[in-house]
């Protein structure tokens, strides 16, 4: 380090300010080297802090056992037309409603009407919210499967029981902050920003689905 041949102890790196008026030609060179050492040491310290901090942050995420509980199978055969059931998936309720012809018609009327469709907050056709895949040669628009969690602040909307309020659009109504969902689970009125989420699910047979 430095250049001891030309300056000796007077131009030591530790105390350049002690030179007074005496010229120290190597000073500029020294300063930039010190800057480099400071910056690289500080960067290494920052990286090291981040590396040590990460495991602490990561412990707070979902653990392996939580992630493992991610699929569930449901038998649909006991559900009558117009009935709805709520099942648990990943600690959240999932709504399964077997819709009546009237429910479907009401939802699809919006699909067909351009002004009504354009007024939706989260534009989605009813046909995109149910499984169109056929099983045994039958279409199944009657089955509506959704995560029963209001997209506003996470309450469970009402509308599953026959006695529940169903809101202004004959679907679901969230009592917490007054979001109204229609018979396709689309947000129509109130503060929620999105439609009720449709989880990943598949028909295992005509009367059996697997969620997740």
């Amino acid at each position: 380090m430095g250049n001891p041949h030309s300056h000796g102890a007077q131009c030591s790196h530790d105390a350049p300010q002690k030179h007074g008026q005496e010229e120290c030609p190597d000073n500029g060179h020294d300063e930039s080297k010190r800057d480099f050492i400071f910056i690289s040491a500080a960067s290494m310290a920052a990286v090291g802090t981040g590396v040590v901090a990460w495991p602490f942050v990561a412990t707070l995420g979902p653990a392996k056992d939580t992630l493992a509980l991610s699929t569930t199978e449901i038998d649909l055969s006991p559900i009558q037309e117009g009935q709805a059931v709520t099942v648990m998936w990943r600690g959240k309720p999932v709504f399964i409603r077997r819709r009546t012809a009237q429910d479907i018609e009401l939802a699809r009327k919006v699909d067909g009407d351009a002004t009504a469709f354009n007024s939706l907050r989260d534009k989605q056709k009813d046909t995109d919210r149910v499984k169109q895949s056929t099983f045994g040669g039958k279409e199944m628009p009657q089955w509506l499967v959704m995560v029963g969690v209001c997209t506003h602040l996470g309450c469970v909307p009402m509308g599953q029981k026959p006695t529940d309020m169903r809101g202004d659009f004959d679907g679901w109504f969230c009592p917490c902050h007054g979001s109204h969902y229609d018979s396709a689970g689309r947000i129509r009125k109130g503060p929620a920003p999105h439609n009720l989420a449709v989880p990943t699910y598949t028909f295992l047979s005509e009367n059996r689905i697997r969620i997740g």
């Binding site: 942050v57 707070l60 995420g61 979902p62 653990a63 939580t66 990943r90 600690g91 959240k92």
Partner: peptide
């Protein structure tokens, strides 16, 4: 939110923290 909860809903990990 998933990180705050430590899962997919408010549950045991949320309560303990």
């Amino acid at each position: 939110v998933t990180w705050l909860w430590g899962g997919f809903s408010v549950d045991n990990p949320t309560l303990t923290r």
